[in-house]
Simulated scan of single mutants.
Amino acid sequence: MLWIDKYRPKRLDKLILNQEIGDNLSKLVATGDCPHTLFYGPPGAGKKTLIVALLREIYGAGAEKIKVETKPWKIALPSRNIEVELTTLSSNYHVEMNPSDVGYQDRYVVQEIIKEMAKSRPLDMKGQRGFKVLVLNEVDRLSKEAQASLRRTMEKYSAACRLVMSCTNVSRVIEPVRSRCLCVRVAAPSTAEVQRMLAHVAKKESLSLPDSLSLRVAQASERNLRRALLMLETCRVAQYPFTPDQPVQLADWELYIQEIASDIMQEQSPKRLFQVRGKLYELLVNCLPPTLILRKLVLELLKKLDEEVQHTALALAAQYEHRMQEGQKAIYHLEAFVAKFMSEYKQWSIMAFG
């Protein structure tokens, strides 16, 4: 089992980070009810941990007895029938899913599947709360139509279910949904807090962790606790006992994006664009979010650019990230960004160096 899951606190009163949020949620549940809730914050800040602990606080240990199901859903529309395949994680009291996984068909998932689940109450009550919880991840990636349908579901079935949602960018969630939720901001942990968590896990694993190594891991993780624990576990596999100057291994996909950035800077040609497109497509096939690929690629390019070209790169990134949100095929927008950047950079190079 990965350390992330092995040492994830299962109860609100056992939280190491976000203790204040945990205390407030515990008091709220003690009143006998729980409103629709929206957790928002950067990746690795602890949103998933808070949701797991909240479910345990509401339903007790029964919420931890979960099963994973992947099944097709047949949805009858006025003009046609469609079939979507969705993976859910469920217990007797809650269902967790990621509606944005089905892409542009997400509104049908919200309109039909979530509505169907919201109608039913928990199977095994035993004196527990009289509502089911639907956990929806990455609601900021849902289309506007899906979010509008979600608002209607929240209103109509509030007696039978509560929605607990999580997202990274709350500004992409429409106002009618936000106004119907208790919005909880989960801030990224500080570098010192990441170090404290690394030390806690190292102690549990009976490992001797040098302060200099834990500091470098915390800094390389960019305040992402999930990433920091994965990095520490990778260091443990690579070499133990730890040494203060031990290198911190980055993820393979990050090294691959660094390679793509180097390819772009070395040559700006149709042949090189074709090669870069293949590498980008390989990242997408391995289920990396396209916005993450674009963001990391831009950060790597910025390290190699003069200040006057950095502004152009950032403006292009913002433009194509917006198009990516509105469109369907991410590879088109990633390739268009690279092509446009290559054109702008080559034109600047000719003017600057003749």
Rank of each mutant, 00 (worst) to 15 (best):
residue 239 Q to R: 13
residue 353 F to V: 07
residue 316 L to V: 09
residue 225 L to K: 00
residue 169 N to V: 11
residue 218 A to R: 03
residue 19 Q to A: 14
residue 167 C to I: 07
residue 150 L to W: 02
residue 306 D to P: 05
residue 190 S to L: 12
residue 73 W to P: 00
residue 329 K to H: 10
residue 264 I to W: 08
residue 320 Y to D: 14
residue 318 A to D: 15
residue 211 D to W: 04
residue 207 L to V: 02
residue 215 L to Q: 08
residue 230 L to P: 01
residue 55 L to Q: 00
residue 170 V to A: 10
residue 219 Q to K: 13
residue 51 I to V: 15
residue 6 K to R: 15
residue 282 E to C: 10
residue 71 K to M: 09
residue 334 L to F: 10
residue 220 A to S: 13
residue 116 E to P: 00
residue 195 Q to S: 00
residue 182 L to A: 11
residue 266 Q to F: 09
residue 351 M to G: 11
residue 118 A to V: 06
residue 274 F to V: 14
residue 177 V to Y: 03
residue 124 D to I: 13
residue 21 I to R: 04
residue 343 S to F: 13
residue 78 P to S: 08
residue 84 V to A: 08
residue 119 K to N: 09
residue 262 S to V: 13
residue 337 F to C: 08
residue 333 H to W: 14
residue 248 V to L: 00
residue 283 L to W: 04
residue 307 E to A: 15
residue 143 S to E: 06
residue 202 A to F: 01
residue 246 Q to Y: 00
residue 7 Y to Q: 03
residue 170 V to W: 05
residue 329 K to D: 08
residue 269 S to T: 15
residue 287 C to W: 12
residue 172 R to M: 14
residue 234 T to N: 06
residue 23 D to P: 05
residue 77 L to H: 02
residue 130 G to E: 12
residue 216 R to G: 04
residue 108 Y to L: 09
residue 160 A to C: 11
residue 121 R to N: 07
residue 350 I to E: 15
residue 177 V to F: 09
residue 93 Y to K: 04
residue 143 S to L: 03
residue 305 L to Q: 15
residue 165 M to S: 05
residue 178 R to H: 09
residue 292 L to G: 07
residue 145 E to A: 14
residue 10 K to V: 02
residue 17 L to Q: 01
residue 119 K to Q: 13
residue 265 M to G: 07
residue 76 A to Y: 12
residue 275 Q to R: 14
residue 187 A to E: 12
residue 313 A to N: 11
residue 102 V to A: 01
residue 316 L to W: 07
residue 153 T to S: 14
residue 46 G to E: 08
residue 11 R to P: 04
residue 65 K to P: 02
residue 302 L to D: 06
residue 335 E to V: 10
residue 265 M to R: 11
residue 308 E to I: 10
residue 266 Q to K: 14
residue 46 G to M: 10
residue 344 E to A: 15
residue 345 Y to A: 06
residue 130 G to Y: 10
residue 241 P to R: 00
residue 298 V to D: 05
residue 47 K to N: 04
residue 334 L to S: 07
residue 258 Q to Y: 06
residue 131 F to H: 00
residue 79 S to Q: 14
residue 14 K to T: 11
residue 328 Q to V: 13
residue 241 P to D: 01
residue 278 G to L: 14
residue 173 V to T: 10
residue 50 L to G: 02
residue 166 S to M: 12
residue 71 K to T: 12
residue 314 L to E: 12
residue 347 Q to E: 14
residue 167 C to L: 08
residue 16 I to G: 07
residue 152 R to F: 10
residue 158 S to F: 11
residue 324 M to T: 04
residue 144 K to H: 13
residue 61 A to L: 07
residue 252 D to P: 01
residue 163 L to S: 02
residue 177 V to W: 07
residue 229 L to W: 03
residue 53 A to I: 04
residue 284 L to T: 08
residue 333 H to C: 06
residue 193 E to D: 15
residue 256 Y to T: 06
residue 273 L to Q: 12
residue 170 V to N: 06
residue 98 N to H: 09
residue 78 P to F: 11
residue 157 Y to I: 02
residue 99 P to R: 06
residue 110 V to S: 00
residue 64 E to H: 05
residue 48 K to S: 12
residue 122 P to D: 08
residue 196 R to D: 13
residue 232 L to T: 03
residue 105 Q to I: 03
residue 6 K to T: 08
